[in-house]
Each structure stands twice: as structure tokens, then as C-alpha cells.
Simulated scan of single mutants.
Amino acid sequence: MQISTRFTIAVHIITCIDYFKDTLPVTSSFLAGSVGVNPVIIRGIMSKLKEAGIIAISQGKSGMTLARPLTEITFYDVYKVTDCVNETGLFHMHENPNPNCPVGRNIQMAMEGKLQDIQAVMEQKMKETTIADVAVDIREKIKQAG
């Protein structure tokens, strides 16, 4: 199991917009340089963030801005926006266990509820963690580096 890098890229984008808001215009090219990916990837994620009302994008010199305060943007918001999980859930069972094997016949039933519980706990923790938490840590690291 692995959550797509779109999640961490989106958090990076949001944090950059906040950090550089008063000093530089934040554009997709600028963000691509910071994240280390192609601007096309940045623009795709930005589009999803804009649709979700997390960022605002303006053509011209101002670039991007946050549509909501960092304290109101949770990891869960970003996780949902970046399509890290679909309606079937985060975990996907292998599709062809042997029905003639007692383990194969029962593995899905035995694991399904446990995996749903694990996902629910993770998502609850994501709802409690904001992008502001990340921004605080980044600013502290920058301050320590002098």
C-alpha cells in the first residue's frame, strides 16, 4: 500500500503558496522547481486544489493564493482532493485466492473489517492534522538553519 505522491506534492504546493505569499509570485513553474517535478504535474494538482476551494489561481503576476487559512486545510482534505483513495478503500485485496484452500476461502472476510478500521483511524488522524502544522515545522527548520 502506498498513497500517491500527489498527496505530498499538494501539501508542498499549499505550503509554498503560504510561505512565499508576501515575497514572490507563486507560479506553476516556480512550484515545479521547488517540488522537483514537471510543471504539467503541478498544474494538474493545482486544478484539483482550485476545484476544492483550497487555492485561488489568477493569471498574471500574483500567481496563486490560498482560498482558506492553513489552519482550515487538513491532511484529509488534501488526501480526498488528490484521489489517494477510491470508493473501494485504501487497501485492495488480491483478487483470486484459491477457494479450495481454507485460508484462501476465508482471507478476505477475515481481513476486510480490520483494514477498514485501520483506514478509519488513519483518516481520523488526517482530519486532526492541518497544513499549518507542516508550515510551523518548516518555518522552525528555516529559523534553526539561520
Results as ranks from 00 to 15, higher is better:
126 M>V: 10
124 Q>R: 10
55 I>T: 04
72 E>H: 08
83 D>P: 05
106 N>K: 14
85 V>E: 04
106 N>D: 13
101 C>L: 12
89 G>Y: 06
128 E>P: 07
116 Q>H: 10
62 S>W: 11
109 M>Y: 14
116 Q>A: 09
135 A>Y: 00
115 L>D: 08
136 V>T: 05
65 T>Y: 02
95 E>N: 14
84 C>S: 02
37 V>H: 06
56 A>E: 11
131 I>C: 08
74 T>C: 04
132 A>R: 00
115 L>S: 02
94 H>N: 11
54 I>A: 03
78 V>A: 00
129 T>R: 04
63 G>Q: 08
62 S>R: 13
97 P>E: 14
61 K>A: 15
74 T>H: 02
86 N>A: 09
37 V>T: 12
134 V>H: 03
81 V>S: 06
37 V>I: 15
126 M>L: 14
88 T>G: 08
122 M>I: 05
70 L>F: 01
137 D>T: 13
133 D>L: 03
109 M>H: 15
55 I>A: 07
47 S>C: 00
44 G>M: 03
107 I>P: 08
129 T>C: 03
139 R>N: 11
81 V>I: 07
115 L>G: 04
111 M>D: 07
42 I>Q: 05
113 G>F: 06
106 N>C: 13
81 V>W: 05
51 E>C: 08
76 Y>G: 08
101 C>S: 15
48 K>D: 01
49 L>F: 05
114 K>R: 08
137 D>F: 06
51 E>G: 11
76 Y>S: 09
79 Y>M: 03
78 V>I: 01
129 T>G: 02
58 S>K: 13
106 N>H: 11
101 C>A: 15
127 K>E: 03
85 V>H: 03
73 I>W: 04
47 S>W: 00
69 P>Q: 02
99 P>L: 12
81 V>N: 05
56 A>C: 13
77 D>A: 11
131 I>H: 05
69 P>E: 07
115 L>F: 06
73 I>G: 07
125 K>Y: 11
50 K>M: 00
102 P>Q: 13
111 M>S: 08
84 C>Y: 02
132 A>E: 01
43 R>W: 10
53 G>R: 09
103 V>F: 13
129 T>I: 02
69 P>G: 05
107 I>N: 14
55 I>Q: 07
90 L>M: 00
97 P>T: 13
